[in-house]
């Protein structure tokens, strides 16, 4: 065990998801996580799409030594695939997804693409004696959506059993949530830094996990999970998106906090909570 880098046994760690080329939110989240004492930073993929200048986010992640798990976007861009593989089923959603993807693919530097190809799909670390499994969509599929209202307890217990983990961390949906299960296992969707959580607020979110104070005396226990709101210069991002001629529907989401596209994949519960 001593040969594993210390960063894989942090007592406090930050987990970012779905950055979608929002470099301003990412920089703010990194500052915030460091200020809160995060010893390690992780990103669960989907670095591009939606926002402008897709070369910026990979540079920031590497500069700050953020450990990155591959999302479907990195798989697609890295291999020059024809679409993002997000898993949308509606023609309108797919049209907007394709606009975001084509822009991202065209503007991603070649050096980033080779890095994207080299990223791992899942990563295992340990915190407070708990086995954490980091993935993008789910442990079994990179583009599977784990929404809160359609991820029931028995199903999540099965994932933890099948993949021999105490804690699963994922993203892909863009909405953050967490469940602590009767077995003591935890499943945490860390949310997204790339766009707001469809709640009419402009901030974005990440997850901060901490080992409890009683760990040394009492042994492994559920980790403390905090979802952290991140305010950033969203108006600056909106200006940059407009300069890059990205769809006004995307800009509206950044400025209002309500999703305007890629809505058909939302389950009824999450869709009812939004405006569109």
């Amino acid at each position: 065990m001593s040969s594993i880098p210390a960063a894989l046994f942090p007592r406090r760690a930050a987990f970012f998801g779905g950055v979608y080329s929002n470099s301003h939110a990412l920089e703010e989240a990194i500052r915030d996580a460091r200020r809160r004492g995060a010893e390690a930073l992780f990103c669960l993929g989907d670095l591009g799409g939606f926002g402008p200048h897709p070369g910026r986010v990979p540079a920031i992640l590497r500069e700050h030594r953020v450990t990155v798990v591959q999302g479907n976007y990195e798989d697609s861009v890295g291999h020059d695939r024809p679409d993002c593989q997000c898993g949308y089923t509606d023609p309108r959603d797919n049209r907007f997804a394709q606009i975001a993807y084509d822009y991202t693919l065209l503007n991603t530097p070649a050096s980033c693409k080779s890095w994207y190809r080299s990223l791992v799909r899942t990563l295992r670390i340990e915190m407070g004696g708990r086995r954490l499994l980091l993935c993008h969509g789910s442990p079994r599929r990179q583009n599977e959506f784990l929404w809160r209202s359609t991820s029931p307890v028995p199903f999540l217990e099965r994932l933890l059993r099948d993949y021999e983990a105490d804690v699963i961390l994922c993203t892909h949906t863009g909405l953050h949530w967490g469940r602590t299960l009767p077995s003591g296992g935890q499943v945490i969707n860390v949310g997204a830094l790339g766009r707001p959580a469809n709640d009419g607020r402009t901030n974005v979110w990440y997850a901060l996990l901490s080992v409890g104070a009683a760990y040394e005396a009492a042994g492994p226990a559920p980790l403390a999970v905090e979802f952290v709101p991140v305010a950033y210069d969203h108006e600056r991002l909106a200006r940059e998106m407009r300069r890059e001629m990205l769809p006004e529907e995307f800009v509206e989401t950044i400025l209002t906090g309500w999703w305007t596209t890629c809505l058909e994949v939302l389950p009824a519960r999450e869709r009812e909570a939004g405006r569109f």
């Binding site: 359609t150 991820s151 028995p154 199903f155 217990e157 099965r158 994932l159």
Partner: peptide
């Protein structure tokens, strides 16, 4: 039975 098998929906 579905609960034991971890059915999702």
């Amino acid at each position: 039975e579905a609960e034991r098998l971890g059915v999702r929906e």
